[in-house]
């Protein structure tokens, strides 16, 4: 009987202890996970919103420049035809009696052509559709080096300040603290020069500058190809046909329509965007 009692007590003792520990562990894990999830749910939107604002500032101007340059060329070209036909229409409308003393020629053909060009301009020079904007969004590539440099430098600048403060508290005005301050100034200078060609004599800076120029040239080439593609697509068929129609219509009124058209198209719209 004495042998049986210790076994029972031992089993009961270990069993109850393990059971209690498991409950405690599960309870603590559950509470900690819940708290963590709650914390993350509070912090993540704040970080995402801050990131959105930073990202927008980095690319908004670039997007504006590219959109402006593309659209201005297209609308300028179409508008040349509009001005050409419209001014001739107004001229003959205001000078019917003088130009056509006895015969009365119908100038409505010019008015109809003006209306046609207006419709085409509204069709081809409208704002980009949602599908186009979606493609721009999905196909966006972060080409610029400056953006990456800015993001990296913003994260790296936090650490030196902390170390400098710590050293100030420890050194009490020694020279090492001043060195840290000088290093920070150097980093600030690098930030001002966008991390490229700041040193001047350093090979790394020269290489960085060369790679930057190469990428910019590539970007410009892509942009020109895209622009040329759009112009070819529009001007290859429809624009040429409409130009021919304008020339024929104007020539039927006794003017040199081809010369007028050539003079109009020879004028270029110069746009410089940095």
């Amino acid at each position: 009987m004495n042998n049986k009692q210790p076994k029972y007590q031992e089993d009961d003792f270990y069993g109850s202890d393990e059971h209690f520990e498991n409950d405690e562990i599960k309870k603590v894990d559950y509470l900690s996970n819940k708290d963590l999830d709650r914390s993350i749910q509070k912090i993540a939107p704040i970080g995402y919103t801050d990131g959105l604002e930073i990202g927008k500032e980095l690319t908004l101007q670039r997007g504006f420049n590219e959109g402006f340059k593309e659209a201005s060329g297209i609308s300028y070209k179409w508008s040349l035809l509009l001005g050409l036909v419209s001014s001739v229409d107004v001229f003959f409308h205001n000078n019917k009696q003088t130009m056509f003393d006895q015969e009365s020629k119908d100038t409505s053909i010019l008015s109809n052509l003006v209306d046609k060009i207006n419709r085409l301009i509204k069709e081809h020079c409208s704002s980009p559709t949602i599908e186009q904007l979606k493609d721009e969004f999905l196909n966006f590539k972060d080409i610029s080096i400056n953006d990456k440099d800015q993001t990296t430098t913003s994260t790296s600048t936090e650490l030196p300040t902390k170390s400098c403060k710590n050293e100030e508290s420890e050194c009490c005005g020694n020279g090492s603290c001043e060195k840290e301050v000088e290093n920070e100034k150097c980093e600030d200078d690098d930030d001002d020069s966008d991390g490229c060609c700041g040193g001047g004599g350093n090979t790394n800076d020269q290489g960085c500058c060369k790679s930057k120029n190469n990428k910019e040239e590539e970007e410009e080439t892509k942009q020109l190809e895209k622009f040329q593609f759009i112009i070819d697509k529009m001007g290859g068929q429809l624009f040429d046909e409409l130009s021919k129609e304008c020339v024929d219509t104007i020539s039927s009124f006794g003017l040199d329509g081809q010369k007028m058209l050539n003079d109009c198209l020879s004028k270029k719209f110069r746009v410089t965007i940095n």
Binding site: K56, F68, A71
Partner: peptide, 24 residues
């Protein structure tokens, strides 16, 4: 970081649309 990536895309698209309209 995720917000910065999406913000770059969004900023480019918004800028492109505005620039396109003004250019027209």
């Amino acid at each position: 970081e995720q917000g910065i990536d999406d913000g770059k895309r969004l900023g480019y698209v918004e800028g492109y649309q505005l620039g396109f309209e003004k250019g027209i």
